[in-house]
Design a binder for these strands. Structure first.
Lengths: 161, 161
DNA sequence: AAATTATGTTAGTCATACCTAATAAAGGCA
DNA sequence: TGCCTTTATTAGGTATGACTAACATAATTT
């Protein structure tokens, strides 16, 4: 069962932009029945021609099935990548909100950039860390201490203003 | 004392590439007496013409003092930014090596990408977190537990291969 | 000082990824 | 059915940041 032959064929690596599009399409695919250019454009905060253009690229790379004026579908390979990026995003955001206490919006935006920056080993370690924390939590006390510490820091920063 | 007027003048934001160059120049400036195109090129793993071209851009933005065939100098503003990026880099790398137990080389590479991805609040929180850990360490036991957990995970991953 | 080597610059390309304006196709409604 | 709106595509342009090849200057050596 050679099931991890999936992403091997010595392809050029994906750009961050390509990964972002695949993630967006993967997300939309779960919410809505059909994925269209309009929706992708909205989600990515770009104009439609940018989407069309990227879809051509992704189509050539067999990551989406795309034909003019038709709904967009991820190929199996494309879905695998979209899902992976999605998971990265979630692990990172969880870390940012739960450990570093960053507000959701900022955490989400940061995660969106960080998901392309972490090497696989780092991502894996972060995922383990988050799992570990869940199983064996830092304990209420401990995190409260960190929160207090943060507040003190914030006050100091105020003064330096 | 209006000392934080420094970066305000409604400038276009810097690109990641610009930040990287400023950081590299800042570093070189500390090691060596003079910073030259050659050194920057080596450090950034690009060819010299790319450096020349970027120096022109940075010069126009008053981040370096640059004249043809002469040594490169950071302006005060440029040095501030270079230093800041450097500090970001170090905080992130420290987190990656000390908390997530990533090897130095990988951590350094990841930090290099992450330093552009974290919002100021996130960076600050991460810095606080690292300081906090130092003052009030997770305790030998705790980190050992995480390390063991990691090993177990690694074994699981092996099997899935 | 002249020749050689090392360093730096210019000119011209390429790839990525965005944009606007103009055009085309699809879908809904009178 | 034909018009009108929405959605999508094409054409063509911009900015960034890399590259190679060719040329220019600076520095070192003989």
């Amino acid at each position: 069962m050679a099931e991890n032959q999936i992403r091997k064929t010595a392809e050029k690596p994906l750009t961050s932009a390509m990964e972002d599009y695949l993630e967006a399409i993967f997300d939309l695919d779960q919410d809505k029945k059909f994925v269209r250019v309009r929706d992708i454009a909205k989600k990515m905060a770009v104009k439609m021609p940018s989407v069309t253009s990227m879809l051509k690229t992704l189509n050539e790379r067999n990551l989406v099935n795309y034909e003019k004026y038709e709904y967009v579908e991820l190929t199996e390979q494309g879905a695998d990548i979209g899902r992976e990026i999605r998971q990265r995003h979630e692990v990172i955001r969880k870390f940012l909100t739960e450990i570093l206490k960053i507000d959701f919006k900022t955490a989400d935006e940061d995660a969106c950039r960080m998901e392309h920056a972490l090497s696989p080993v780092t991502l894996e370690s972060l995922a383990d860390f988050m799992e570990f924390i869940q199983i064996c939590p830092m304990g209420g006390d401990r995190m409260n201490l960190f929160e207090e510490y943060r507040k003190q820091q914030a006050e100091k920063t105020e003064k330096n203003h």
